[in-house]
Design a protein around this nucleic acid. Structure first.
Lengths: 96, 96
DNA sequence: TATATTTATAGCATAACTGCTATAATAATT
DNA sequence: AATTATTATAGCAGTTATGCTATAAATATA
């Protein structure tokens, strides 16, 4: 994250979560599968109806995409949804 | 509708996608897993740090949640991410 | 029935996602 | 090296996700 973003974030006491670990893991997973399926970012953008900038922002982990966006990607790449989420999140170690 | 209205609307018509089919399928899947894991919506909300209204909105398919929100849910329910996405999307039949 | 718990709905304010457009940076190809 | 293709970055406008608070509806329990 950029310094300017960190500063403004810290200042505003923001409420919405941004799961950096998960977002980065998803970015890696998407890029892996997109390339495996033989798509360029442009192709994926065009065929899915998403914008190229959006695809790039997702793969560089700059934004926190919505489910509908991910669904559009999965449909276009023609892969099972679970494939895109086939990675591990660190679990919170709590629980009684 | 008048042409002028269509034109001015066309300019503003940049509505974001809302994948109703996918959002509904996710709502069902979340509810199923939440109950299976023995959580009430309140518990899930409290332990995840999400608001109760947000959990309800997701399970009633009224909103299009972000990945970070889904990640928080998966962590709290302590289930693999792929579990929450273990459902089928209708694929677009095209290609080649 | 009554009471408590759980789930659903609503409005507001704020943060942020997305499309769009343009440009820059990087990688691939000739 | 030059050209092309691909990927990354940036700012703006419009729409929406989210938290918060409150209330209503539905469901479970006594």
């Amino acid at each position: 994250m950029k310094l300017s973003a960190m500063i403004s974030r810290q200042k505003v006491d923001r409420k919405l979560i941004f799961d950096e670990e998960g977002i980065k893991a998803f970015a890696i997973q998407l890029k892996k599968i997109r390339i495996r399926e033989g798509f360029s970012q442009s192709q994926l953008a065009f065929e899915s109806g998403l914008s190229l900038s959006q695809i790039a922002r997702i793969e560089t982990a700059r934004i926190n995409p919505t489910l509908s966006t991910v669904f559009a990607i999965a449909r276009t790449l023609n892969v099972p949804l679970a494939d895109l989420f086939n990675f591990e999140l660190s679990q919170k170690e709590n629980n009684v």
